[in-house]
Design a protein around this nucleic acid. Structure first.
Lengths: 235, 235
DNA sequence: CGAGAGCTTGACTTAGATCAATCCGCGTGG
DNA sequence: CCACGCGGATTGATCTAAGTCAAGCTCTCG
């Protein structure tokens, strides 16, 4: 496999105070005084598809807020197999585990060009100690991650390949607000649904034939939501 | 299905100060002053196998610390299918999500007679606001739950039925300290590994034939760890 | 003793994996 | 400009692991 250069453009020191999506992210409730507690720079990074935020085992110096784009969390098995355990979009936090003193559990790779903020562990820990206003947000992120993990297991790993694929389409569509669904490469679909790339391909093709999804642009689909929901439950 | 009476014996108001396993649980770091903040009773309950701690959608008035025994978290799909998403043993907390203001996401059912402490939501929230000493523990519980959820997905839902079953045996053995493995009923095994009860049964039977597990007592096994690990990776 | 719940086993079917070939779109370099 | 190569998608033919359906077994408990 060709080692791609990590494509990260450093955009500068973030101005959290004036963050446009602050209500989505970790610092939603912070007040003016709290920002005085930030003594290390929070950096803003623009990452291209294919870039890696971190790898499993890297000792975690920072968590990352996703401001836009799409990031996958990949977990590897001893036998070389790999599973995608979560997809992160705007508002989510990657690498929460470092705040609990662990090293990273997954590899975090960019699927759609992403704007992220790098939050040094010390900053979050300091704020978490000094101000109760971060607790609620942090707890929300934990609980949301866990909810997604459980949903992932029950929805995307239960039933026939058609059911799982239908649920994946609906799941991805719920991420993008424009009603369209940008599908992942077939290999990643396989790593999410526990299927081979061939079966992923066949199932997508079948959905196209059935007309429950329409390919607007290469690998971007217009969904027939009701039909897909029917497949998701009836098979 | 016969509706069993919920078999809960109320053992009395817990004395958290003197809790024998306090270092395992949520209140590990609390100091004398913190206990003054507990204004609602923390109750200690003994629950028989089959008892239900809560059901999905119940509005969550409390989280539960597991002091001993084994509890399963079950998630249901719209089509009636069900998956076991986690097993909780001593030290774990069931119903963490209520602390983030959600109602319960799962059904929590007792698999092996369990001693649990019922922690009213207000108590935990109050402590969490007033003392930073709970934060770390709470974060540890969240992060541990999430780690288990991801591990569950990658280890127990990837590979052949033999691999998954081998990993389940090893996983269960790591819960019990005595080196033995108390296997679950086949239907539950199926709901964990995404298999039918028949396949679960056949696979356990095959393991017995191969001698990689030995049935000491009904449904209690002595494991051949190295052999199982071999199966877990090679198939 | 009888009933019911859970377990096992067998015969058969099938969904999805595997193996292999081709196709398609795109960037690169002659 | 065009041929080439490469990564991903597709499609076909075959194989097999696991599901399905059905029967019988083994406890336990009332």
């Amino acid at each position: 496999m060709r080692r791609t250069q990590i494509e990260a453009a450093w955009l500068g020191k973030a101005e959290c105070r004036n963050c446009g999506i602050r209500d989505l992210v970790l610092f939603a409730d912070l007040q003016e005084a709290d920002f005085q507690l930030i003594h290390q720079p929070v950096e803003e990074l623009m990452l291209d598809s294919g870039a890696t935020l971190y790898r499993p085992g890297d000792d975690g110096a920072a968590a990352f807020t996703i401001r836009s784009g799409l990031v996958k969390l990949v977990q590897y098995l001893p036998d070389g197999n790999r599973r995608i355990v979560r997809l992160l979009r705007a508002g989510a936090v990657a690498g929460l585990e470092v705040l609990a003193g662990r090293s990273y559990e997954h590899a975090a790779e960019v699927l759609q060009p992403a704007l992220v903020c790098r939050l040094p562990r010390e900053v979050v820990e300091r704020l978490n100690q000094e101000t109760p206003r971060l607790h609620r947000q942090l707890m929300n992120k934990w609980s949301e991650s866990l909810r997604l993990a459980d949903e992932w297991l029950t929805e995307l790993n239960t039933g026939t390949s058609r059911q799982r694929m239908a649920r994946l389409f609906l799941h991805l569509a719920s991420l993008d607000e424009d009603g369209l669904c940008r599908m992942l490469v077939r290999e990643d679909v396989g790593a999410i649904l526990s299927l081979t790339t061939e079966t992923s391909s066949r199932t997508v093709a079948e959905f196209k034939r059935l007309g429950v999804v329409r390919e607007i642009r290469p690998n971007t689909f217009q969904l027939e939501a009701e039909a897909l929901e029917k497949i998701a439950v009836d098979g």
